[in-house]
Write a protein that binds this DNA or RNA. Structure first.
Lengths: 202, 202
DNA sequence: GTCTATATCCAGATAGAC
DNA sequence: GTCTATCTGGATATAGAC
């Protein structure tokens, strides 16, 4: 009994260390990029030795891949609540657009994630692809189905329309926040919301 | 006379070396990012010594800043020809959108530039701002004026509309090319063109 | 599993001859 | 202005004790 308990305690602290490494490494990668992050700082931030980091993740690339992949899967859950896709388009669409935009604009970690994903998409193409698959495809499909279920909207190509919608929103976040364009080309979020509502609902 | 000519020849080769350093360094930065680029390879690619690179550019950061700034100023010229902004909207807008989209989708160097600009926008915020100013503001203004000069289009907020337009186009390029989404969520360019035409021209 | 200590290499940057 | 040679620090990664 005692041995088992000891084992369990040991495994717990190990898990905790791995957890600390993962979260700390994520912070480092988001702040400094892939090449700009050192394994020394990753270890220091997690409060463990470098050798421990290497014993859990084969090398720097392995650690990076694990982090990005995990994050790509996780994030797409909480972007929007698909149960809200019921009701008349005027209300539903406005709510959808507002929620998604505000979510992106206020989430600095998500912004840093997008930054590194794009920045490293040359070196790590598969990670970019996985993100596209996990983040873009689900909302695309769901919103398409919603638009198609309302033929009175008269939308000839719902998929293209949803891409236009998402694209203008993501691009807005990028120019305003990621690229620090808030002061250079300022614009209230509501104007983009109204614009999309106007052009989509005719 | 002879001395002057010698001097001129010497200055010519110097300029040539600087040119070689600039173009070579650009290739390196575009391929490997800021932190991933080494001054050794920059020097080697230019066929000069490292000391020569440092004598012309104070340090790595200075070289990078010079390159990105120069490129931000230069590129915005050839994106579109504003003389083409005369005629009826159906023709002008379609041509504008098609040209810009095809230009972005086929220019791999521009794509790599966007990648590094976003990737390093955390470390070099002023460069990102300069690019926003040089690349976004001019077309934004010009297209806005065009739309406003055609009140029959019934566009309530031309600036927001142009942002929607440009945003969806840039985002399309990013997902398809930068993030290698061509095979994962394929879509013909024409569909986005038609979609924009439909929603903007009502 | 985790540590300290270390091997090995390569980075940015400069000194000094020519 | 340009080179070779070098300084110095910090990077990835591992060996070996506990």
């Amino acid at each position: 009994m005692a041995r088992i308990k000891t084992k369990e305690i040991e495994r717990e602290t190990t898990v905790e260390k791995v957890e600390k490494i993962l979260t700390g490494a994520m912070q480092e990668f988001l702040a400094h990029g892939y090449a700009g992050t050192s394994m020394d700082r990753v270890a220091a931030r997690a409060g463990v030795s470098k050798a421990t980091v290497y014993s859990h993740f084969h090398d720097k690339e392995g650690l990076f891949r694990a982090l990005i992949e995990q994050s790509a899967h996780k994030k797409f859950e909480d972007l929007f609540d698909k149960s809200l896709l019921e009701g008349e388009p005027k209300v539903v669409l406005r709510y959808l657009i507002t929620t998604a935009l505000d979510g992106m604009l206020s989430d600095q970690e998500h912004q840093a994630f997008v930054r590194i994903l794009i920045g490293e998409s040359g070196r790590f193409p598969e990670l970019a692809k996985a993100w596209i698959h996990d983040m873009m495809t689900p909302p695309l499909k769901i919103i398409c189905e919603y638009l198609d279920s309302h033929p009175e909207l008269n939308i000839p190509d719902s998929e293209a329309t949803v891409r236009m919608m998402i694209g203008s929103m993501v691009h807005f976040m990028m120019t305003q926040e990621l690229l620090h364009g808030k002061e250079i080309i300022p614009m209230e979020t509501e104007r983009l919301v109204e614009c999309l509502m106007y052009h989509i609902l005719k």
